[in-house]
Amino acid sequence: MNPPDAPPPGIRLGPEQRLAWLRLIRSENVGPVTFRALINRFGSAQEALEALPALARQGGSTRAVRVVGLEAAEAEMGLAERLGARFVCLGEPDYPAILRAADAPPPVLAIMGDAAVLNRPTVAIVGARNASLAGIKFARHIAAELGRAGFVVVSGVARGIDAAAHEASLDSGTIGVFAGGLDRPYPRENRPLMRRIVDSGSCLVSEMPFGWEPRAIDFPRRNRVVAGLALGLLVVEAASRSGSLISARLAAEMGRLVFAVPGSPLDPRAGGTNQLLKEGSLLVTEASDIIDVLRPMDGRLGLRAGHDIEEGEEEMMGAAPTDSERQRIIEALGPTPVAVDDLIEHTGASPGTVHLTLLELDLAGRLERHSGGRVSLLA
Rank of each mutant, 00 (worst) to 15 (best):
L282K: 05
T322G: 15
G280N: 10
P321V: 03
T336Q: 04
E345I: 09
L283H: 04
P337N: 02
H307N: 15
A339Q: 09
E279T: 05
A349H: 01
R328S: 14
L301D: 01
T285M: 12
G272T: 01
L343I: 06
E279M: 10
E279V: 06
A320R: 12
D298S: 11
G334H: 06
H346C: 01
T353C: 11
I290V: 14
P337K: 01
T285L: 13
P296C: 04
G299V: 01
S288V: 02
I290Y: 02
E313W: 12
E315G: 10
L301F: 03
E310L: 15
G348S: 06
R300V: 02
S281T: 05
H346P: 00
S350D: 12
G306C: 11
E310V: 15
S288D: 14
K278M: 11
L303M: 12
P296V: 00
R295I: 08
L276R: 02
L294Q: 06
R326I: 07
K278V: 10
G272N: 02
A287G: 11
E331Q: 10
S324W: 03
D341L: 10
E325G: 06
L283S: 10
S350K: 11
I344Y: 04
G352R: 07
D289K: 07
K278Y: 03
S281L: 04
Q275H: 09
E311K: 13
R328M: 11
I290R: 02
D342T: 06
N274A: 08
I330V: 15
I344E: 04
T273N: 06
S324P: 00
E314N: 07
L294Y: 04
P351K: 05
L294G: 07
E286L: 05
E325R: 05
D342N: 10
S350H: 09
L282P: 00
E345Y: 03
T336I: 06
V338I: 15
P296I: 01
R328H: 09
R295D: 13
E286G: 11
E310A: 15
E313A: 14
A305V: 11
R300L: 15
E286S: 12
H355D: 09
R300E: 08
S324D: 13
G280W: 13
H355M: 12
P337G: 04
V338S: 01
